[in-house]
Design a protein around this nucleic acid. Structure first.
Lengths: 141, 141
DNA sequence: TTGCACGCTGGAGTGGGCTCCAGGTCAACA
DNA sequence: TGTTGACCTGGAGCCCACTCCAGCGTGCAA
Protein backbone atom coordinates (compact mmCIF):
# COMPACT_ATOMS: atom_id res chain seq x y z
CA UNK A 1 0.00 0.00 0.00
CA UNK A 2 1.32 3.35 -1.03
CA UNK A 3 1.17 5.63 1.94
CA UNK A 4 0.62 9.12 0.63
CA UNK A 5 2.25 10.94 3.53
CA UNK A 6 0.70 14.32 3.97
CA UNK A 7 1.67 17.25 6.03
CA UNK A 8 -0.67 19.88 7.42
CA UNK A 9 -0.26 23.46 8.53
CA UNK A 10 -1.69 24.37 11.94
CA UNK A 11 -4.64 25.97 10.19
CA UNK A 12 -5.35 22.81 8.21
CA UNK A 13 -4.95 20.64 11.28
CA UNK A 14 -7.41 22.83 13.14
CA UNK A 15 -9.81 22.60 10.23
CA UNK A 16 -9.52 18.81 10.02
CA UNK A 17 -9.77 18.06 13.72
CA UNK A 18 -12.14 20.74 14.83
CA UNK A 19 -9.76 21.84 17.58
CA UNK A 20 -8.75 25.49 17.71
CA UNK A 21 -5.16 26.53 17.05
CA UNK A 22 -4.80 27.42 20.68
CA UNK A 23 -6.15 24.08 21.75
CA UNK A 24 -3.71 22.25 19.49
CA UNK A 25 -0.83 24.20 20.98
CA UNK A 26 -2.22 23.60 24.45
CA UNK A 27 -2.43 19.85 23.86
CA UNK A 28 1.14 19.79 22.70
CA UNK A 29 2.22 21.85 25.69
CA UNK A 30 0.69 19.48 28.21
CA UNK A 31 1.98 16.43 26.37
CA UNK A 32 -1.30 15.11 25.07
CA UNK A 33 0.21 15.52 21.66
CA UNK A 34 3.85 14.64 21.08
CA UNK A 35 6.08 17.50 19.93
CA UNK A 36 4.93 18.28 16.42
CA UNK A 37 7.46 18.50 13.55
CA UNK A 38 8.57 21.96 12.49
CA UNK A 39 9.58 23.44 9.16
CA UNK A 40 12.70 25.58 8.73
CA UNK A 41 10.85 28.60 10.04
CA UNK A 42 9.85 26.80 13.21
CA UNK A 43 6.22 26.48 12.22
CA UNK A 44 4.36 23.29 13.01
CA UNK A 45 3.72 20.71 10.34
CA UNK A 46 1.24 18.08 11.42
CA UNK A 47 1.49 14.55 10.02
CA UNK A 48 -1.25 12.07 9.19
CA UNK A 49 -0.27 10.26 12.33
CA UNK A 50 -0.80 13.42 14.36
CA UNK A 51 -4.24 13.84 12.84
CA UNK A 52 -5.06 10.22 13.54
CA UNK A 53 -4.13 10.61 17.15
CA UNK A 54 -6.09 13.85 17.37
CA UNK A 55 -9.09 11.94 16.05
CA UNK A 56 -8.73 9.54 18.93
CA UNK A 57 -8.39 12.44 21.35
CA UNK A 58 -11.54 13.99 19.96
CA UNK A 59 -13.42 10.76 20.39
CA UNK A 60 -12.31 10.41 24.00
CA UNK A 61 -12.89 14.04 24.78
CA UNK A 62 -16.34 14.05 23.24
CA UNK A 63 -17.29 11.09 25.36
CA UNK A 64 -16.25 12.96 28.47
CA UNK A 65 -12.85 11.54 29.28
CA UNK A 66 -10.90 14.02 31.41
CA UNK A 67 -7.55 15.21 30.10
CA UNK A 68 -5.69 13.52 32.95
CA UNK A 69 -6.95 10.14 31.79
CA UNK A 70 -6.21 10.89 28.16
CA UNK A 71 -2.66 11.63 29.27
CA UNK A 72 -2.51 8.23 30.94
CA UNK A 73 -3.67 6.64 27.71
CA UNK A 74 -1.18 8.68 25.68
CA UNK A 75 1.64 7.42 27.88
CA UNK A 76 0.60 3.83 27.31
CA UNK A 77 0.55 4.40 23.58
CA UNK A 78 4.06 5.85 23.68
CA UNK A 79 5.37 2.98 25.76
CA UNK A 80 4.74 0.59 22.89
CA UNK A 81 2.93 -2.62 22.14
CA UNK A 82 3.44 -4.16 25.57
CA UNK A 83 0.75 -1.86 26.86
CA UNK A 84 -2.04 -2.94 24.55
CA UNK A 85 -3.64 -4.96 27.29
CA UNK A 86 -3.66 -1.95 29.58
CA UNK A 87 -5.06 0.20 26.81
CA UNK A 88 -7.91 -2.22 26.26
CA UNK A 89 -8.62 -2.22 29.99
CA UNK A 90 -8.66 1.57 30.05
CA UNK A 91 -10.86 1.91 27.00
CA UNK A 92 -13.27 -0.74 28.21
CA UNK A 93 -13.65 1.06 31.50
CA UNK A 94 -14.33 4.22 29.56
CA UNK A 95 -16.83 2.42 27.35
CA UNK A 96 -18.72 1.39 30.45
CA UNK A 97 -18.76 4.97 31.61
CA UNK A 98 -20.11 6.12 28.28
CA UNK A 99 -22.81 3.49 28.54
CA UNK A 100 -23.73 4.73 32.00
CA UNK A 101 -23.78 8.29 30.75
CA UNK A 102 -26.20 7.40 27.99
CA UNK A 103 -28.44 5.49 30.37
CA UNK A 104 -28.55 8.42 32.74
CA UNK A 105 -29.33 10.83 29.93
CA UNK A 106 -32.15 8.63 28.69
CA UNK A 107 -33.59 8.43 32.18
CA UNK A 108 -33.50 12.16 32.77
CA UNK A 109 -34.79 12.78 29.29
CA UNK A 110 -37.83 10.68 30.11
CA UNK A 111 -38.48 12.85 33.16
CA UNK A 112 -38.03 15.95 31.05
CA UNK A 113 -40.59 14.68 28.58
CA UNK A 114 -43.07 13.88 31.29
CA UNK A 115 -42.70 17.45 32.41
CA UNK A 116 -43.25 18.76 28.91
CA UNK A 117 -46.29 16.52 28.65
CA UNK A 118 -47.64 17.91 31.87
CA UNK A 119 -47.24 21.47 30.62
CA UNK A 120 -48.94 20.53 27.37
CA UNK A 121 -51.91 19.19 29.28
CA UNK A 122 -52.12 22.39 31.26
CA UNK A 123 -52.08 24.38 28.05
CA UNK A 124 -54.69 22.17 26.41
CA UNK A 125 -57.02 22.60 29.36
CA UNK A 126 -56.61 26.34 29.51
CA UNK A 127 -57.39 26.60 25.80
CA UNK A 128 -60.51 24.43 26.00
CA UNK A 129 -61.88 25.01 29.47
CA UNK A 130 -63.94 21.99 30.48
CA UNK A 131 -64.34 21.42 34.20
CA UNK A 132 -64.44 17.63 33.94
CA UNK A 133 -60.87 17.08 32.91
CA UNK A 134 -58.06 17.48 35.36
CA UNK A 135 -54.34 17.20 35.21
CA UNK A 136 -53.46 14.85 38.02
CA UNK A 137 -50.50 15.95 40.02
CA UNK A 138 -49.40 19.49 40.49
CA UNK A 139 -45.76 19.58 39.49
CA UNK A 140 -42.85 21.60 40.70
CA UNK A 141 -42.09 24.40 38.28
CA UNK B 1 -55.69 14.59 48.82
CA UNK B 2 -54.14 15.29 52.17
CA UNK B 3 -50.90 17.14 51.62
CA UNK B 4 -48.53 16.06 54.35
CA UNK B 5 -46.37 19.16 54.33
CA UNK B 6 -42.87 18.33 55.35
CA UNK B 7 -39.93 20.45 56.23
CA UNK B 8 -36.30 19.51 55.80
CA UNK B 9 -33.08 20.62 57.42
CA UNK B 10 -30.25 21.55 55.08
CA UNK B 11 -28.65 18.20 55.84
CA UNK B 12 -31.82 16.35 54.90
CA UNK B 13 -32.29 18.41 51.76
CA UNK B 14 -28.73 17.63 50.73
CA UNK B 15 -29.37 13.95 51.39
CA UNK B 16 -32.60 13.93 49.39
CA UNK B 17 -31.39 15.91 46.43
CA UNK B 18 -27.81 14.78 46.20
CA UNK B 19 -26.58 18.37 46.18
CA UNK B 20 -24.00 19.38 48.75
CA UNK B 21 -24.84 21.91 51.46
CA UNK B 22 -22.57 24.39 49.77
CA UNK B 23 -24.24 23.83 46.45
CA UNK B 24 -27.68 24.37 47.95
CA UNK B 25 -26.52 27.64 49.49
CA UNK B 26 -24.86 28.57 46.22
CA UNK B 27 -28.05 27.92 44.25
CA UNK B 28 -29.99 30.09 46.63
CA UNK B 29 -27.37 32.81 46.43
CA UNK B 30 -27.51 33.00 42.65
CA UNK B 31 -31.29 32.83 42.60
CA UNK B 32 -31.69 29.38 41.14
CA UNK B 33 -33.53 28.57 44.31
CA UNK B 34 -35.89 31.10 45.84
CA UNK B 35 -34.98 32.31 49.33
CA UNK B 36 -35.56 29.32 51.58
CA UNK B 37 -37.66 29.63 54.75
CA UNK B 38 -35.80 29.98 58.02
CA UNK B 39 -36.56 28.86 61.56
CA UNK B 40 -36.24 31.18 64.56
CA UNK B 41 -32.50 30.59 64.67
CA UNK B 42 -32.09 31.62 61.06
CA UNK B 43 -31.43 28.11 59.82
CA UNK B 44 -32.90 26.99 56.53
CA UNK B 45 -35.96 24.80 56.44
CA UNK B 46 -36.63 23.37 52.99
CA UNK B 47 -40.20 22.62 51.93
CA UNK B 48 -41.51 19.83 49.72
CA UNK B 49 -41.88 22.44 47.02
CA UNK B 50 -38.21 23.34 47.35
CA UNK B 51 -37.28 19.70 47.00
CA UNK B 52 -39.53 19.33 44.00
CA UNK B 53 -37.89 22.25 42.30
CA UNK B 54 -34.46 20.92 43.19
CA UNK B 55 -35.46 17.67 41.53
CA UNK B 56 -36.17 19.59 38.37
CA UNK B 57 -32.86 21.40 38.69
CA UNK B 58 -31.08 18.09 39.08
CA UNK B 59 -32.75 16.75 35.97
CA UNK B 60 -31.77 19.79 33.92
CA UNK B 61 -28.28 19.93 35.31
CA UNK B 62 -27.68 16.22 34.74
CA UNK B 63 -28.70 16.64 31.14
CA UNK B 64 -26.14 19.37 30.73
CA UNK B 65 -28.17 22.55 30.92
CA UNK B 66 -25.94 25.46 31.92
CA UNK B 67 -26.87 27.40 35.04
CA UNK B 68 -27.59 30.53 33.03
CA UNK B 69 -30.35 28.74 31.17
CA UNK B 70 -31.74 27.18 34.31
CA UNK B 71 -31.98 30.70 35.68
CA UNK B 72 -33.96 31.73 32.63
CA UNK B 73 -36.30 28.82 33.23
CA UNK B 74 -36.57 29.65 36.94
CA UNK B 75 -37.61 33.19 36.07
CA UNK B 76 -40.35 31.92 33.78
CA UNK B 77 -41.62 29.66 36.53
CA UNK B 78 -41.75 32.57 38.95
CA UNK B 79 -43.56 34.78 36.49
CA UNK B 80 -46.56 32.47 36.62
CA UNK B 81 -48.81 30.51 34.33
CA UNK B 82 -48.61 32.92 31.42
CA UNK B 83 -45.14 31.59 30.73
CA UNK B 84 -46.04 27.96 30.29
CA UNK B 85 -45.75 28.26 26.54
CA UNK B 86 -42.27 29.70 26.86
CA UNK B 87 -41.33 26.99 29.29
CA UNK B 88 -42.44 24.30 26.88
CA UNK B 89 -40.42 25.96 24.14
CA UNK B 90 -37.36 26.08 26.35
CA UNK B 91 -37.69 22.50 27.53
CA UNK B 92 -38.32 21.21 24.03
CA UNK B 93 -35.19 22.92 22.81
CA UNK B 94 -33.34 21.31 25.64
CA UNK B 95 -34.86 17.94 24.86
CA UNK B 96 -33.53 18.23 21.33
CA UNK B 97 -30.10 19.00 22.72
CA UNK B 98 -30.24 15.96 24.94
CA UNK B 99 -31.22 13.87 21.94
CA UNK B 100 -28.27 15.22 19.99
CA UNK B 101 -25.97 14.55 22.91
CA UNK B 102 -27.07 10.94 23.07
CA UNK B 103 -26.65 10.50 19.33
CA UNK B 104 -23.16 11.92 19.47
CA UNK B 105 -22.23 9.69 22.40
CA UNK B 106 -23.50 6.63 20.56
CA UNK B 107 -21.52 7.56 17.50
CA UNK B 108 -18.28 8.10 19.38
CA UNK B 109 -18.91 5.00 21.42
CA UNK B 110 -19.07 2.99 18.21
CA UNK B 111 -15.68 4.37 17.19
CA UNK B 112 -14.34 3.56 20.64
CA UNK B 113 -15.54 -0.01 20.29
CA UNK B 114 -13.98 -0.39 16.88
CA UNK B 115 -10.73 0.69 18.44
CA UNK B 116 -11.09 -1.82 21.26
CA UNK B 117 -11.87 -4.49 18.66
CA UNK B 118 -8.76 -3.55 16.76
CA UNK B 119 -6.62 -3.89 19.87
CA UNK B 120 -8.24 -7.22 20.65
CA UNK B 121 -7.30 -8.48 17.20
CA UNK B 122 -3.74 -7.36 17.72
CA UNK B 123 -3.66 -9.19 21.02
CA UNK B 124 -5.18 -12.35 19.55
CA UNK B 125 -2.61 -12.40 16.77
CA UNK B 126 0.33 -11.88 19.08
CA UNK B 127 -0.87 -14.74 21.28
CA UNK B 128 -1.32 -17.16 18.37
CA UNK B 129 1.22 -16.08 15.80
CA UNK B 130 0.07 -17.19 12.38
CA UNK B 131 1.49 -15.25 9.47
CA UNK B 132 -1.62 -15.63 7.31
CA UNK B 133 -3.92 -13.44 9.34
CA UNK B 134 -3.55 -9.74 9.28
CA UNK B 135 -5.26 -6.88 10.96
CA UNK B 136 -6.20 -4.55 8.14
CA UNK B 137 -5.57 -0.97 8.90
CA UNK B 138 -2.88 0.29 11.21
CA UNK B 139 -4.63 2.59 13.63
CA UNK B 140 -3.52 5.70 15.44
CA UNK B 141 -2.63 4.90 19.07
C1' DT C 1 -20.95 24.03 81.51
C1' DT C 2 -18.90 22.09 78.27
C1' DG C 3 -18.59 19.82 74.24
C1' DC C 4 -20.34 18.52 69.98
C1' DA C 5 -23.16 18.63 65.81
C1' DC C 6 -25.22 21.41 62.88
C1' DG C 7 -25.84 25.56 60.77
C1' DC C 8 -24.85 30.66 59.48
C1' DT C 9 -22.23 34.48 56.56
C1' DG C 10 -19.22 36.81 53.14
C1' DG C 11 -15.65 36.18 50.58
C1' DA C 12 -11.72 33.80 48.72
C1' DG C 13 -9.96 29.78 46.34
C1' DT C 14 -10.04 25.75 43.17
C1' DG C 15 -9.87 22.82 39.01
C1' DG C 16 -10.69 21.92 34.44
C1' DG C 17 -10.17 23.31 29.98
C1' DC C 18 -9.23 26.24 27.34
C1' DT C 19 -8.56 31.30 25.28
C1' DC C 20 -6.33 35.58 24.67
C1' DC C 21 -2.56 38.69 24.21
C1' DA C 22 1.76 41.37 23.13
C1' DG C 23 5.46 41.38 20.62
C1' DG C 24 7.98 39.00 17.29
C1' DT C 25 9.39 36.00 12.74
C1' DC C 26 8.76 34.75 8.07
C1' DA C 27 7.01 34.28 3.13
C1' DA C 28 4.48 35.89 -0.51
C1' DC C 29 2.54 39.20 -3.12
C1' DA C 30 1.53 44.32 -5.15
C1' DT D 1 9.52 48.08 -0.29
C1' DG D 2 5.74 47.59 2.20
C1' DT D 3 1.81 45.23 3.76
C1' DT D 4 -0.71 41.16 4.63
C1' DG D 5 -1.53 36.89 6.81
C1' DA D 6 -0.16 32.81 9.00
C1' DC D 7 2.41 31.43 12.65
C1' DC D 8 5.61 31.66 16.91
C1' DT D 9 6.30 32.14 22.38
C1' DG D 10 5.44 32.62 27.38
C1' DG D 11 2.40 33.89 30.30
C1' DA D 12 -1.84 35.85 31.92
C1' DG D 13 -6.75 35.61 31.97
C1' DC D 14 -11.30 33.60 31.68
C1' DC D 15 -15.49 30.92 32.54
C1' DC D 16 -18.04 27.63 34.92
C1' DA D 17 -19.60 25.46 38.77
C1' DC D 18 -18.69 24.79 42.65
C1' DT D 19 -15.91 24.32 47.30
C1' DC D 20 -13.63 25.88 51.25
C1' DC D 21 -12.78 28.77 55.10
C1' DA D 22 -12.74 31.67 59.45
C1' DG D 23 -15.31 33.06 62.79
C1' DC D 24 -19.62 32.90 64.70
C1' DG D 25 -24.53 31.22 66.73
C1' DT D 26 -27.76 27.58 68.55
C1' DG D 27 -29.40 23.62 70.92
C1' DC D 28 -29.10 19.38 73.08
C1' DA D 29 -26.85 15.55 75.92
C1' DA D 30 -23.47 13.94 79.37
Amino acid sequence: MLDAVSVYTPGQAAEETGFSLDTLRYYERIGLLEPVERNAAGQRRFSDEDLGWLGMVRCLRDTGMPIAEMLRFAKLVRKGDDTINDRVTLLEAHDREVEAQIAQLREKQAALRRKIGYYRDVLALSETPSPCERVEEPQPG
